Computed example of a mutant assay.
Amino acid sequence: MPRSTHASTDHSFKSPEGLRALLIRLQQNGGAGWRADAEAAALMRHAADRYAALARKHGLDPWEAAAAAFDAMRSPSIRRADDPWAMVTRAVQVTCIAEERARGLLCSVHQARRAHYSAFHDAERFSDRENPLLEYHPAFRTEPVDVDPSPQAENVGSAVEDAVALFTLLGWPAERARTAIEYVCTRLADSPSRSSAFEALRRDYNARALLDVPQRAWTAMLRVLLGHPDPAFAHTTFGRGILLRLLVGEPLRALLSDEQIVAEIAGHVPRSET
Rank of each mutant, 00 (worst) to 15 (best):
A200F: 06
G31I: 00
L134Q: 14
H228K: 04
E130G: 14
N29V: 07
P62M: 06
A32T: 13
A66M: 14
A112C: 08
R240A: 15
H137S: 10
R35A: 14
Q27N: 06
R20K: 07
L105F: 06
I181H: 03
F233C: 10
L256H: 07
E143W: 10
I181W: 02
H137W: 08
D37E: 04
G267W: 11
T168P: 09
N131R: 15
Y183H: 07
R202S: 15
Q27Y: 01
L246K: 02
G33Q: 05
W218G: 05
A91P: 03
G33H: 07
P231T: 09
R194S: 11
A102K: 07
L23S: 09
M73H: 10
M73R: 08
A123P: 15
T179Y: 11
S75P: 03
L22D: 10
R90F: 00
L188Q: 13
E135D: 11
G241S: 05
F70P: 05
I24L: 03
A66L: 14
H228T: 12
P76G: 02
H58Y: 02
A98N: 06
L133E: 14
F70N: 14
P149E: 06
P2A: 15
P214F: 12
A48V: 00
S272E: 12
T219G: 09
E17F: 09
L43E: 08
A217I: 04
D61M: 02
A165C: 10
R141W: 09
L243S: 09
G18L: 01
A232G: 11
L226S: 05
N206G: 08
L188A: 13
T95I: 00
T186L: 06
L23D: 06
E161V: 13
E250H: 09
R79T: 10
W63Q: 05
M221F: 11
H116D: 08
W34A: 02
S75F: 01
I265K: 03
Q93D: 00
L169W: 14
F70R: 15
A91H: 01
P270D: 06
A48H: 01
L244F: 04
E273A: 07
S257Y: 12
R103D: 15
R129P: 07
E130L: 15
S12V: 09
T89R: 02
R80P: 11
D71M: 04
L23M: 10
N155I: 02
F233Y: 11
V160W: 04
L246V: 11
S195Q: 11
P214S: 12
L225D: 09
A153R: 10
S193P: 00
T95V: 00
H228F: 05
E143S: 10
N206P: 04
H11T: 14
A234H: 12
N155R: 00
G30T: 04
Q260H: 14
G241W: 12
H121T: 13
N206D: 15
S191D: 02
I97F: 02
R101W: 07
E199P: 00
A48G: 01
A165G: 07
L210D: 10
L166T: 03
L19K: 07
H137M: 10
A21T: 05
D204F: 09
M87G: 12
F126H: 10
A174L: 05
A48K: 01
A36P: 11
M87S: 12
P138L: 11
W63V: 02
E130V: 14
H228R: 03
R90W: 00
G18F: 03
E199S: 13
E100D: 08
A153W: 11
L170S: 01
G157H: 04
S196R: 09
